[in-house]
Write a protein that binds this DNA or RNA. Structure first.
Length: 701
DNA sequence: CTTAGGG
DNA sequence: CCCTAAG
């Protein structure tokens, strides 16, 4: 072997490096800080300016309904809020979010017994934007059969109402785990007509306290249901004098003005970044919360911004358009689905994909166990055709020796987060839920098995080996439905797939995803004209994704005010977890761990030796082309750990030991490439030897 | 989509 | 492994 020494590089065997460049981290780090500071300053500046303007026009603000003034008023509250909570970063976070226009609620505040009455009030004020929105949290869609086939959707809570919400949740956090069966809170369906708001002057006394009696809500719903005029104004309480219905509208309009930077800050669709809280820490927290792995449901703000018509959403579908080959197709599909899920989140219906609460799988000894295929799918088409499906079935597992009998009474469909405008109809709510459910099922489900709380991952072990046997207490056994990552090829049934819920797990596993049914996260924001299809889930796919924007064009100012409130308030959802304690299971199934085998490491090392550490994609293509589950990020990560592993003492290493030889190569390559941050160069120099320290090294091109 | 890094 | 900011 030719051993050509390259003094200039200090490392032998690698191609000539070139164009070194500063580590990205460096490049990145340099400006990060400044940007942040700048933003914060900007915000503070805005705040102070706003404050001043405010004072100047304060007096007239309450009486003058001109847009300008109102606009100020609008901003004022926000500013004030910020100040009031300046010393309470944490709470401020929520305020910020609130200001962002989401429908997050102030339960944080409420739950903490905040004395700032006035603040709360103001808070509510700004909240007017959300008046028309309701967020419902469907803890579980209990499809249990024991309900007699009458599927029950459970809406545990309407979250928009701060106090209401907080109080209930607070007291009953545990109830989240329970099937909130009869607890159907239709608040989500409250139909708050603009008209109702407008009439508020008439019937509305001074209910300007910051508290919203529950009764009021109920009453409202009743009124609505009766289809009579909605006289009782909801939320008026939260509207200070200066905010008569009319004013409110004005305010909204004003705030919606895109040209007005100031108001812009308080627009719902504004990026969170625009609301950098006073402290970095706070900011950090927000992001943390929003991106908490436990709350995947929280949308990536980045993606949320301006959910303009379909446009804004499309990109997600476009993802992975360039799938390399067949092998990647699967992945593509998977990714798309994943994205869809995210999209879903952003739209309004969210499925907490993670571990679906396992269902009370009781192994009933008494229940006869029919031999396998007995699984019968009980498909329930509510009288109206939708609702939900019951998925009940019995399955029997066989072990060599004896049989273990299972009787799965029901599976529980994953948690759902549903958010619909208050103007949505019951029918649309149904559809929305239906879509959520079908999409979950459609995107593939897998069955998970839990034994004593732990997930049984090894599919190859026998029940006995796993510890599932007749004699054992099967109570500790649980089943759950979880997202199936292994997607089947392309979606085809572009038609709509019936809300079919097959119980046959095998079907669930292979069922191909349906079409972009997820498109319709937000059902009609406007009272759907043709209430006809309200119970027909089939056309749900065509429901308009009423984008806030296109609504503006064709609706009256009033409606506008309502519609303008984008249903994008997932941040609110991010809040829920706080109450739910450490809700263990991540909502999004983490990829199963796949330790790299020695051979994989070898391949990786080899590839890196040749390509360097900055071309993970190439590495992937070259060495892991066929390894669907290894993404370039994985490879990069692996390399990272390899380098680390190589540096630490052998005793500290864990997992499958990697041959020292490989580790040596890792270090060698690492040091080499770190010195020559270079990108590869086209043709290698003729005689460039390839390697040396390592004994055998057969370039496998 | 890729990279580079932090978590 | 995940998540993201950057590019």
């Amino acid at each position: 072997m030719v051993f050509k020494k390259r003094q200039d590089h200090g490392f032998n065997g690698f191609r000539l490096p070139t164009i070194p460049r500063a580590p990205r981290s460096v490049r990145r780090g340099l400006r990060k800080k400044t940007v942040e500071d700048t933003q914060i300053c900007a915000f503070e500046l805005l705040a102070s300016i706003a404050g001043k303007l405010l004072h100047e026009s304060e007096s007239s603000a309450s009486s003058n309904a001109s847009e300008g003034i109102d606009l100020l008023a609008c901003g004022k509250d926000a500013v004030k809020q910020e100040r009031e909570f300046e010393d309470k970063p944490f709470k401020a976070e929520w305020l910020y979010q609130r200001n962002c226009g989401d429908s997050s609620f102030a339960f944080e505040m409420a739950s903490q017994n905040i004395s700032h009455k006035s603040t709360l009030k103001e808070f509510s004020h700004s909240e007017s934007d959300d008046v028309l929105e309701r967020t419902s949290f469907i803890k579980s869609f209990d499809c249990s059969q024991k309900t007699g086939g009458d599927a029950k959707s459970v809406i545990c809570k309407s979250k928009t109402d701060s106090e209401n919400y907080s109080s209930k949740v607070e007291g009953g956090s545990p109830q989240f785990g329970e099937s909130c069966d009869a607890n159907v809170n239709i608040e989500a369906e409250r139909r708050l007509e603009v008209v109702g708001l407008k009439n508020e002057d008439a019937n509305k006394p001074n209910i300007c306290s910051s508290k919203v009696p529950t009764e009021l809500f109920l009453e409202s719903s009743a009124a609505i249901n009766s289809d009579s005029n909605v006289k009782v104004p909801l939320r008026q309480d939260s509207v200070p004098n200066a905010c008569s219905p009319r004013h409110r509208n004005d305010i909204k309009l004003g705030c919606r003005d895109d040209d007005e930077n100031f108001s812009r800050c308080f627009k719902r669709s504004t990026k969170l970044k625009a609301f950098r809280p006073p402290t970095h820490i706070a900011d950090r927290r927000i992001r943390k919360l929003l991106t908490s792995k436990y709350w995947k449901v929280a949308p990536k703000l980045k993606d949320c911004e301006f959910p303009r018509s379909e446009g804004g959403l499309k990109p997600l579908y476009r993802k992975r358009k360039t799938c390399h080959d067949r092998q990647n197709r699967q992945k593509c599909q998977r990714d798309i689905l994943f994205k869809r899920r995210k999209l879903f989140d952003q739209i309004s219906v969210v499925t907490s994909d993670g571990g679906f609460s396992s269902e009370s799988v009781s192994n009933s000894p008494e229940k006869g166990m029919t031999e396998d295929k007995n699984d019968s799918a009980a498909i329930l088409h509510g009288a109206n055709g939708v609702s939900s499906s019951v998925l009940g079935h019995q399955a029997s597992f066989h072990s060599k020796d004896s049989h273990v009998k299972f009787s799965i009474k029901s599976f529980r469909v994953p948690e759902l987060f549903i958010e619909v405008p208050e103007t949505a109809t019951v029918g649309s709510l149904k559809r929305t839920i239906m879509e959520a459910v079908t999409s979950i099922l459609g995107s593939g489900l897998d069955v998970g098995i839990l034994l004593q709380g732990k997930k049984v991952r090894d599919d190859n072990r026998t029940l006995m080996q796993t510890g599932i046997s007749c004699k054992d207490n099967l109570d500790s056994l649980g089943f759950m439905l979880e997202p199936n990552t292994v997607q089947t090829p392309p979606p085809m049934c572009s038609s709509d797939l019936p809300p079919l819920l097959s119980c046959d797990s095998s079907q669930l596993l292979t069922r191909s995803p349906e079409n972009p049914v997820l498109d319709s996260g937000i059902s009609d924001a406007l009272p759907d004209p043709p209430l006809t299809n309200s119970s027909n889930h089939v056309d749900s796919n065509h429901d308009t994704v009423s984008s806030p924007t296109d609504m503006n064009d064709k609706t009256t100012p009033d409606t506008k005010a309502i519609v303008a409130v984008p249903a994008m308030s997932m941040e609110a959802l991010a809040v829920v977890p706080l109450n739910q304690k450490t809700r263990r299971s991540e909502l999004v199934q983490r990829r199963t761990r796949r330790p790299f085998s020695v051979s994989e490491v070898e391949a990786l090392v080899h590839a890196v030796e040749e390509l360097g550490t900055g071309r993970w994609r190439d590495v992937k293509l070259r060495a892991f082309e066929n390894a669907d589950h290894r993404t370039y990020v994985d490879l990069k990560d692996k390399w990272k750990t390899l380098v680390h592993t190589a540096k630490i003492a052998p005793q500290q290493r864990r997992g499958e030991p990697v041959p020292q030889e490989l580790l040596d190569r890792v270090l060698a390559a690492h040091s080499y490439w770190s010195q020559h941050q270079a990108k590869p160069q086209g043709k290698h120099q003729a005689g460039t030897p390839k390697i040396m320290e390592a004994p055998a090294e057969v370039p496998v091109e």
